[in-house]
Design a binder for these strands. Structure first.
Lengths: 161, 161
DNA sequence: CGGAGGTCGGTGACGTGTCAACAAAGACCG
DNA sequence: CGGTCTTTGTTGACACGTCACCGACCTCCG
């Protein structure tokens, strides 16, 4: 598709500068390599995947939550969460439970096994995140990374256009 | 680093501070939301996934490459790349071609259709990356993000422990 | 009441990615 | 030469995520 804008002040696609490309590559390499490393350690230490851990973690405060509410909170699609809950339910980590007042859906409830798995996984997981990520950055870099998150995505979890 | 405790032999799992958690969440939200947005736009504009684009992009310089070489360059596993090449081959974007001198593997070759797909996708993809990511950061943030990549992963693609 | 429309969540198909296991071929060395 | 070790890439099983779609249920209003 060729650009058909008449008097566009940006004639070409504005390629990335070297600095911009460096930042984009940094983000992509972090996503690729760091995620894999954290995920692998988590799986070996606890048998949980990162998504598993996130679900358990987001459930742990109240112990139960509506699927849609949990999905919104995690910025996941309902479909993704539904699939994942099914798999976690098969492993006994969570349970679907009918809720009265609305028969359309159900609460997702943390089982004792799920809570135990989370509590056993947490210390090592935090240690992984520290060792592989946090402790490799300066306080300044940590602060700016937080700023970047807000600059790019907005102060809240606003992920709409 | 800012050691707050004088002689602290790390008694507990050292939970993350608020600033550290903010950085960790920023990273995770970027990975989740930004990737999804960029990927969605790329798919709608060009019919390519981000992995497709990456493969084509890494092939475009030389037009052909050994699978292992390409995998190393992209920081992918050979298995992942082999699977992905199979799918891309089915769509006519790349082709496996026997190479003389080593009959164990083959070269991955960019087809004309693959090169065309890349060239048509590139301007819009760059525009997406700009609009959704780069242009939302200050030059300072862009610079620090590049630094973070090197601090966390090392100056090169060193993804070993 | 009863129907229209929105909400809740589940489902099937498919593309993606990982892991472990494997086969084929090169490399090395006696 | 012949055996062993290594390298190369593929495969199968499975977990993960998305998309489009559906069916059940709630809400609201005529």
């Amino acid at each position: 598709m060729t650009a058909d804008a008449p008097a566009d002040p940006v004639p070409d696609p504005r390629w990335l500068t070297a600095e911009e490309m460096r930042a984009w590559l940094a983000y992509r390499r972090l996503r690729l390599v760091l995620s894999a490393a954290v995920n692998r350690e988590l799986a070996q230490d606890s048998g949980l995947s990162e998504p598993d851990y996130d679900v358990l973690s987001n459930l742990s405060e109240s112990g139960r939550r509506r699927l849609g509410e949990l999905a919104d909170r995690m910025l996941w699609s309902r479909s993704r969460l539904s699939h994942h809950i099914t798999r976690m339910q098969d492993r006994g980590l969570v349970r679907r439970e009918d809720v009265d007042g609305d028969a359309r859906g159900s609460d997702i409830v943390l089982t004792p096994a799920g809570r135990l798995a989370l509590e056993e996984a947490a210390p090592r997981h935090v240690a992984s995140v520290r060792r592989l990520f946090i402790d490799r950055m300066t306080p300044e870099q940590i602060r700016v990374l937080g700023d970047i998150g807000e600059a790019v995505l907005g102060p809240l979890g606003d992920h709409t256009e």
